[in-house]
């Protein structure tokens, strides 16, 4: 089975890392523009800072992984990939490479505006930071969504050949981006002074509630994908069979992604978000709970990429 796989772990890792980085950047820039110093009082500035600092690294590591699996790299032409930038055409990979390069540049510049240890909503970088945030949002969304478009472009791969894969990848990217910020925050934030405790708590609530909503959307998209795959016949029907009960990827998909990556974090998040939402109680998950939830969401994001990339390659058109 492995012989069929033209795209293996490096590509899967890239899809996951680039999605997470792009998601984190998009979420960070949105938070900044909405309430992190972009004119709304700046109480979530620290959240925006975590996201901005996280974003570029996974995207750059992912892009490096991408190069490792090129046939030209394997044959010893280490810099041949630069031909990607000698032209631009309507291939999703060509558009994606340019987008990726632009995103890396923008996200690095955006992170740079936060680099100062004393960065604050109204420092001398504020104007530049705000401008870059406006650019980061569309580029982040574009990088998060293009990988799904890339997979969906081929009739010869019925599992991928649906517009919903791109949507699924984008929502999952935002969700893993939020999880990455939550994880960084849980790992790094120091014991807050009492004056700031309320703010930090609200930031956690904001992120967790957004993640919960994104997971809800993701579950809806997964439901649509699986349902249409089940109801149709022919190439798509056979392809989706691999994630249906009895299929070779069913366990990874249903247990690894749906159960551990979606349901488990959603339930834990509900447990903490609902009391606050309905009864205005304190939002008080422990640091380890936040770490667990965000780790599991990240794991789910990886599982999704893994199952989708493998499933598309072990299935194909039926009949000759």
């Amino acid at each position: 089975m492995t012989e069929y796989l033209n795209w293996g772990l490096p590509i899967i890792g890239y899809f996951f890392l680039a999605g997470t980085g792009a998601g984190a950047a998009t979420v960070s820039a949105s938070v900044l523009l909405r309430g992190g110093g972009g004119g709304f009082g700046g109480q979530h500035f620290r959240l925006a800072r975590y996201g901005a600092m996280i974003a570029p690294l996974p995207v750059m590591i992912g892009s490096a992984l991408l190069i490792l699996e090129l046939g030209s790299f394997e044959a010893g032409s280490y810099f041949k990939f630069l031909y990607l930038f000698s032209t631009i055409n309507l291939s999703p990979m060509s558009v994606g490479s340019w987008l990726l390069m632009a995103f890396i540049a923008v996200s690095l510049a955006y992170a740079y505006t936060f680099l100062d240890n004393d960065a604050s909503p109204n420092d001398r970088m504020a104007g530049r930071r705000r401008a870059l945030a406006w650019i980061t949002v569309p580029f982040g969304i574009a990088v998060a969504i293009y990988t799904g478009v890339l997979l969906g472009a081929m009739p010869a791969r019925p599992f991928w050949n649906s517009p919903i894969i791109a949507m699924l990848f984008m929502i999952s990217s935002l969700s893993t981006g939020v999880a990455a910020i939550l994880l960084a925050r849980a790992l790094l934030h120091a014991e807050a002074p009492a004056s700031e405790a309320k703010n930090i708590q609200f930031g956690g609530y904001l992120l967790t509630a957004s993640d919960l909503m994104l997971i809800g959307f993701e579950a809806a998209i997964v439901f649509l994908f699986v349902m249409f795959g089940y109801l149709t016949v022919g190439d798509v029907g056979y392809a989706v069979d691999v994630i249906m009960p009895g299929g070779s990827l069913a366990a990874l998909f249903w247990v690894g992604f749906v159960l551990i990556g979606l349901l488990l974090p959603a339930l834990v998040e509900l447990r903490y978000v609902l009391p606050k939402l309905l009864y205005h109680k304190d939002f008080s998950p422990s640091r380890s709970t936040e770490m667990l939830v965000s780790t599991v969401v990240l794991l789910g994001g990886f599982m999704l990429r893994y199952v989708v990339v493998i499933a598309g390659q072990i299935t194909g058109p039926v009949g000759i």
Binding site: N6, W7, G71, L84, A153, A156, G312, P317
Partner: peptide, 11 residues
């Protein structure tokens, strides 16, 4: 560059 996209796209 050997990106293998065409290998995937060929039915």
């Amino acid at each position: 560059i050997g990106c293998k996209y065409c290998l995937q796209a060929c039915p």
